[in-house]
């Protein structure tokens, strides 16, 4: 994503700039049918009138967005104030996703660095090892996580057994369990792009820095990190965005006590509420947020390119 395009600038791109634009046709056709059309449908639905118990009536209405942003009390007849409910749900989801991303970065970066610094022959094996657990279905991995975390599960048994703690720590059905689940679900999406960046990194730069009396910390901060930044940014986006909309981890590990964006939207289509336009509106707000985020990243990347080039 952002990393790929940013680092590919240079002579090769200039030479082939106008070659074979029709190569993109299949991709555009796919995106058109399976991404743009559904998003457009969602946009239309978010401005329709809801039908009781699911479905829409083909009449223009902004009720869905009104419900999202304005609070009119329990009975819907008070003067409107700002609705904090959904903002709070979105904020919680962002916070959870951000924490999971940070955890993935803290563990993923050293891992990727480790793999990239192994002898070339061994690297594919390490990458292979990282991906093995992800051959198992996400649902099954999340349920297994639940087995590990519960009050009388292996983690608590171990901690109590070794005398580190006296009482089991309640992890399951907390926000921390959700963060752990998200972090675990998407960790390879952090490791792999960073690995790709670090692998391309010219380690003689680090040696040169050391020769010029830079400490290891300074070398990491001033030389390595800026060089592999596109990979780090790509990894963060790849973990953050799916975490934001996930509902499996919040449901299974968080006990579904609090709506996340994903479960709020799901409830509108499959739950009692049956409010399709509102579900579509919430999806549009989420989509807009993610798009803005990606645009900011893309612009920063472009600016960085201009600065160095």
């Amino acid at each position: 994503m952002a990393g790929g395009t940013a680092s590919s600038g240079g002579t090769a791109a200039d030479t082939y700039k106008n070659a074979r634009p029709w190569l993109l046709l299949p991709a555009w056709a796919f995106l058109g049918v399976f991404v743009l059309a559904p998003v457009f449908m969602m946009l239309v639905y978010s401005f329709l009138t809801k039908e009781f118990r699911g479905g829409v009536i083909w009449e223009f209405s902004t009720a869905a967005y009104d419900q999202f942003f304005f609070n009119r009390g329990l009975f819907g007849d008070e003067p409107p104030t700002i609705e904090w409910t959904y903002i709070a749900i979105f904020w919680r989801s962002i916070w959870q996703a951000a924490t999971a991303t940070l955890m993935a970065l803290l563990i993923g970066f050293p891992t990727a660095y480790f793999i990239a610094t192994r002898p070339e022959k061994l690297r594919p094996m390490w990458v292979f090892l990282i991906t093995i657990p992800y051959w198992v279905n996400l649902l099954i991995r999340t349920v297994s996580m639940k087995f590990m975390l519960r009050d009388n599960g292996p983690i608590n048994d171990f901690l109590v057994g070794t005398g580190l703690i006296n009482e089991p720590i309640t992890i399951i059905n907390t926000n921390f369990a959700v963060q752990l689940g998200l972090f675990y679900s998407y960790l390879p999406f952090m490791v792999l792009p960073i690995y790709a960046s670090v692998e391309r990194y010219n380690f003689s730069l680090s040696e040169a820095a050391a020769d010029l009396y830079a400490s290891k910390w300074v070398t990491l901060r001033r030389i390595l990190l800026p060089a592999v930044k596109p990979g780090v940014v790509a990894g963060c986006i790849l973990v953050f965005v799916p975490s934001l909309g996930s509902f499996l981890a919040p449901d299974l590990l968080g006990g579904a006590k609090n709506f996340m964006i994903g479960s709020l939207i799901e409830e509108q289509f499959k739950g009692n509420a049956g409010n399709w336009p509102f579900g579509a509106a919430a999806s549009m707000v989420l989509l807009t947020m993610v798009l803005i985020l990606l645009l900011i990243f893309a612009r920063q990347q472009a600016r960085a390119q201009k600065g160095t080039g």
């Binding site: 009781f52 329990l74 819907g76 006590k257 409010n275």
Partner: peptide, 17 residues
């Protein structure tokens, strides 16, 4: 009924927000 259900939907959202 529809208008009554709307209140119950709000209560449910309040419960899970």
């Amino acid at each position: 009924e529809q208008d009554v259900q709307a209140v119950y939907d709000t209560i449910w959202t309040n419960l899970k927000k």
